[in-house]
Design a protein around this nucleic acid. Structure first.
Lengths: 223, 223
DNA sequence: CAGATTTTCGACAATTTTGCGCCAAGTGAT
DNA sequence: ATCACTTGGCGCAAAATTGTCGAAAATCTG
């Protein structure tokens, strides 16, 4: 299975050149503007090369729009070399940048570096940061800032399950089955109760609601 | 189309019992050893039940062998209940385990839980971009640009259904049956109401009419 | 074993969604 | 233009879901 690479640039020449150079090793998708790119994003690529300088919606804006929904690495292509652009690019969620004109072997090296890093990520994480909240899955401890929070066993299990699948919605049944194991009886309303306790303990320290209710469906960890 | 289920166990009695119990609901394939199982795997099943304790190649080895090539859920059947086995099973790519002897209804519940989860995974993309509108089917969120829109459960279901079948026209009856389930009563006029609410919420942000009315027929998601 | 902590449970309150009647507005055919 | 029919808009009440609380049952600790 080839890696999918999406290239967004308004210069046709660059697109066709890239396609020729990268086509053997990757499945290359190209878009000459943000609108086309958004359509193509229904298939999520493994890496994105994004030109900053484009008419209508520029690369920085596009990046800002899709970041948060898509986690793959984004490399900016830019002719401008001002430091401001770089900082801006990284601050809207870019992972790297490379200035035009560039050598093809350098681009290739960067791409594979990012893909390798992404692959390693897949190995279960044992630590999670979110603003001030730190969850250590190894030692089963939770900190808010420097202060350690105290969660019971079941409470921590729920936190672990939801936070490790942040953004995904689970109904109470599913949470119950996952954490208690299936046993004919057993009532998933206990989940609700534990979540209340978790929320209470968190609310002492922050207003942010980490466990969101999705009405009529279930709960999810805020992304 | 029935789900295909592959059962691998060296006890003939178990195989025939399972076949009898699951045969109506599923297409059951059975194998009494790893070798036979590998042959049957030319047809990829939707779920695998795999006994750990078998002569020659045991379930754990078999699992390790096929995992990486086959992504369907694998449930271990085991007489041993040591925690070590469970961990080992899960670490070689199993998804669940159930200890013998087990109740048939429990096994059935587990099977359908996994199939359900698998189905959700498989359904097309879990993200849709259309101009500035972003629909995230996993987290059940909708964004217009950077702003999150708030839809109720049923509203989101309608959005999901229509947008995942963009361009297709559905009459209200069909939409109602699809999302509410066809339980005789109930009036498809509520669909109209929900669609109005969806349109209202969208119209705050854009003039584009995502849900088009096909006069005298029904509605469709603008392509 | 006694006391503390955690987990579970049931009932009720608070909130949100859903369903539906009614009439206005829009559409197409004659 | 008029008629017959379909769709849209509004508001309120019923229904469903979630949140809260107190207390019992189970589990852990020393």
């Amino acid at each position: 299975m080839k890696y999918k690479i999406l290239i967004i640039d308004d210069e046709e020449m660059i697109l066709s050149m890239m396609e020729k150079c990268l086509g053997e090793e990757f499945s290359v998708y190209t878009a000459e503007n943000a609108k086309k790119a958004l359509e193509l994003l229904n298939v999520i690529p493994d890496i994105i090369l994004l030109d900053i300088n484009m008419p209508e919606m520029d690369g920085l804006e596009l990046c800002q729009l899709i970041r948060g929904h898509i986690s793959c690495p984004i490399i900016f292509l830019t002719a401008r070399v001002t430091e401001g652009d770089v900082i801006k690019g990284l601050s809207v969620g870019g992972d790297d940048y490379i200035t035009k004109p560039f050598r093809m072997d350098e681009l290739l090296a960067r791409i594979s570096a990012h893909l390798r890093r992404e692959e390693r990520k897949g190995t279960a994480e044992n630590l999670r940061f979110d603003e001030e909240l730190i969850i250590d899955y190894n030692s089963r401890t939770v900190f808010y800032g420097k202060e350690q929070l105290d969660f019971s066993n079941k409470e921590f299990e729920i936190i672990r399950f939801l936070s490790q699948n942040a953004g995904m919605v689970f109904d109470r049944e599913t949470i119950y089955e996952k954490l208690w194991g299936y046993n004919g009886e057993g009532d998933s309303i206990v989940v609700k109760e534990h979540i209340r306790k978790i929320r209470n303990k968190l609310s002492v320290h922050t207003d942010k609601n980490y466990i969101e209710t999705v009405w009529g469906v279930g709960y999810k960890w805020a992304k």
